[in-house]
C-alpha cells in the first residue's frame, strides 16, 4: 500500500545569527491511510516543525531543508506549485494548533471567516466557487458537526466572544471544510482545561472514526497521545527514537529515552509510582552531541554511542534507534 504520508531522511535546519541549528536530523516516517499516529516528545524536540513541514508551512529562510523528502499521496511536497499546494492544505492535510486565536481574525465574524475558507477550498479544488449564502449554509453544517450549539447564531459572533474550547471547535470545523484526508493536530488541547480537553478529544476521536480521517496528533502529554492514537512516535532532539504500537510502547518501551519519559509521568491512578526525572537537560541544537543525541543523559551509554549515530532498526516488533535496543528491556 502506498503510504498517505511518506517522510524519508528529512533534515531541516534554521540559520540564525548564532549559527545553524539542525532541528530535524533525518526523519523517517510513513503513515498509512486510516492510521492514528501520535508524536510525543519534550520542548524543542521538533514535533511542530515536522508537522508544519508536511504542509510546507515552515518559512524558508530562516528554515532550510538539508536533505530528504516528504511525499503526500505520492506527490513530492517540495515540488508542488501554488495550486497543488493550496489543494494539499485543504483537501490533503488540515491542521489545527494549540492557540486557535492566532488563526482567527478578531475583526471578522466566525461566519464570514468560514465562508471565505469554504470558498477558497472550492477554488483550490478547481470547482466553481459557491455563492456566499450557500457557503454559509455549509459553515452552519460544519459547526453542527463539531457539536456547537445554535450554529446559525454562532456564525454572527466574533472570536473573542467564544471560550477557548468553542474556538478550538470552530478551528476544527474550518479544518473539516476542505474534506481533508489527514488531520494534523498540534497540541490541540494544551491550552484548555482538563474538562474541556476531554470534550475536544472526544470530538476529534468521533470525527476520525466517522470520517475515516488519518490522524497525526502532536502532544507533549502521553495521556493525550494514549487516548487517541494506536501508534506512537517518540522524538528526542530532532530524531525519531522509537516508533511502536501504543500498547507495546507503553508496556514495553525499548528506547532508554522512552523509558525515562514514562518513568517521569505522574499517574493519578498509581500514586505509589514515584516519578523519576531524567538527569541533565535537552541539548543545544546549535551544537548537538555527536553520535546518539541522547547519549549525555543516557543510563546505558557506551563509548560507541558518542561516536556513531544509531539508525532506526526493527527490534522486538517496533522501530527503535539505539545501539543497545536489544538489551534495554
Amino acid at each position: 500500500m502506498t503510504p498517505l504520508l511518506d517522510i524519508r531522511g528529512y533534515r531541516l535546519a534554521f540559520d540564525g545569527f548564532e549559527g545553524r541549528a539542525e532541528v530535524l536530523d533525518g526523519i523517517d516516517l510513513a503513515v498509512q491511510p486510516g492510521e492514528t499516529v501520535g508524536i510525543v516528545g519534550e520542548t524543542g524536540c521538533g514535533k511542530s516543525v515536522l508537522a508544519r513541514s508536511i504542509a510546507r508551512l515552515v518559512e524558508m529562510p530562516p528554515g532550510r531543508v538539508l536533505g530528504g523528502s516528504i511525499a503526500f499521496e505520492g506527490q513530492d511536497v517540495f515540488a508542488m506549485d501554488g495550486r497543488a499546494l493550496a489543494r494539499l492544505r485543504g483537501h490533503g492535510v488540515a491542521m489545527i494548533f494549540q492557540d486557535p486565536m492566532t488563526y482567527l481574525n478578531p475583526v471578522f465574524s466566525i461566519g464570514s471567516q468560514m465562508v471565505d475558507v469554504i470558498r477558497a477550498h472550492d477554488r483550490a479544488e478547481g470547482r466553481s466557487m459557491r455563492a456566499r449564502p450557500a457557503a454559509r449554509t455549509r459553515a452552519a453544517e460544519l459547526l453542527a458537526a463539531v457539536r456547537l450549539p445554535e450554529p446559525d447564531r454562532l456564525l454572527d459572533r466574533y472570536p473573542h466572544e467564544l471560550s477557548g474550547g468553542m474556538r478550538q471547535r470552530v478551528l476544527i470545523a474550518m479544518a473539516l471544510s476542505g474534506e481533508p484526508r489527514m488531520l494534523v493536530a498540534d497540541e490541540p488541547t494544551t491550552a484548555l482545561d482538563v474538562t474541556i480537553q476531554a470534550q475536544v478529544l472526544r470530538l476529534i476521536a468521533e470525527l476520525v472514526a466517522t470520517r475515516g480521517l488519518t490522524l497525526l496528533l502532536i502532544s507533549h502529554d502521553l495521556g493525550v497521545i494514549g487516548a487517541l492514537c494506536r501508534r506512537v512516535v517518540v522524538m528526542y532532539a530532532g530524531t525519531v527514537v522509537e516508533d511502536a504500537d501504543a500498547g507495546l510502547l507503553f508496556d514495553r518501551p525499548r528506547h532508554p529515552y522512552t523509558r525515562g519519559l514514562l518513568a517521569a509521568v505522574p499517574d493519578l491512578a498509581r500514586p505509589d509510582h514515584r516519578v523519576a526525572g531524567i538527569p541533565g537537560h535537552i541539548p543545544n541544537l546549535l551544537a548537538p552531541p555527536g553520535g546518539c543525541r541522547f547519549h549525555p543523559r543516557c543510563p546505558l551509554a557506551i563509548p560507541r554511542c558518542a561516536a556513531e549515530k544509531p539508525g532506526l532498526r526493527d527490534v522486538d516488533g517496533r522501530r527503535v534507534a539505539c545501539h543497545r535496543a536489544e538489551e534495554a528491556a
Binding site: 482538563v194 474538562t195 480537553q197 476531554a198 470534550q199 478529544l201 472526544r202 476521536a205 502529554d221 502521553l222 495521556g223 493525550v224 494514549g226 487516548a227 487517541l228 492514537c229 494506536r230 501504543a246 500498547g247 510502547l249 507503553f250 514514562l262 509521568v265 499517574d267 493519578l268 491512578a269
Partner: peptide
C-alpha cells in the same frame, strides 16, 4: 474522570 492516564486507549467520556 477527565484526567488522562499515561496508557493507551483510555479516552474518558466527556464528563461535563
Amino acid at each position: 474522570a477527565s484526567v488522562l492516564p499515561p496508557r493507551p486507549g483510555a479516552l474518558p467520556d466527556a464528563p461535563l
